[in-house]
Design a protein around this nucleic acid. Structure first.
Lengths: 107, 107
DNA sequence: GTAATGAGTAACCGATTGGATACCTATTAT
DNA sequence: ATAATAGGTATCCAATCGGTTACTCATTAC
């Protein structure tokens, strides 16, 4: 039995630190591949592969402009993760409340 | 050059759907391994491995009670992901604003 | 004390990952 | 037309992943 194909999954997409770094770069604005490459020690094909993973997970979109391909963030899938995390928010909020209560009782 | 060791990384920890399902189960309360196992078709050692990954990523804690090991959610690292996503929130919020504006102009 | 139960570890396997180098394709510049 | 530029694809490789079965270690139960 073959395992599921994870490549197109957004959780998988953001699991890699290089891909997160790419997103963080795009956060400051859309950019063509050459601009994205700057600051990475990896080869261009490596980055190209990462971009494909991000594309297939629909976390970024590619727009062809002349011979460049400009990448931009497409937020819907990231929002999906955020929604999933939302169910856990009460955990850290009650932690904070407990800490606050503790600190106050120690006065 | 060896690749980084990803096992202890929280983004890697939540990348696997089985591990997310485990967390979703723990979201309704702490549970020993046998209870966690229910509903999964995988073997106990497989789940055991997933629990180890979650433990090493500090997304859960294990507490030994008799011969059981009770797992609970430990929210700090999930919150870390939430913070990272926070930087992207404006993307989907402006998307919504644009949609709203569009709908109103079409009004 | 011996059996049963709860759960982790060891060893192994095939699939996937992330990287590199070499090559190909499309667009712009001369 | 030819060279240069931007960027993706093909192929290969070692490492990691996620799963399995077999085994081990504690802690009850009898």
């Amino acid at each position: 039995m073959p395992r599921r194909k994870a490549s197109a999954d957004v959780y998988h997409a953001i699991a890699d630190p290089t891909r997160r770094a790419i997103l963080d770069k795009l956060r400051t604005g859309s950019a063509p591949v050459n601009a994205i490459l700057e600051g990475f020690s990896q080869s261009r094909p490596a980055i190209s592969k990462h971009l494909r993973v991000l594309r297939e997970a629909q976390v970024v979109v590619e727009k062809r402009v002349g011979r460049e391909r400009v990448y931009s963030i497409r937020p819907a899938k990231l929002q999906q993760i955020s929604s999933w995390l939302e169910s856990y928010r009460r955990f850290w909020e009650t932690s904070l409340k407990n800490l606050k209560g503790y600190l106050e009782s120690e006065g």
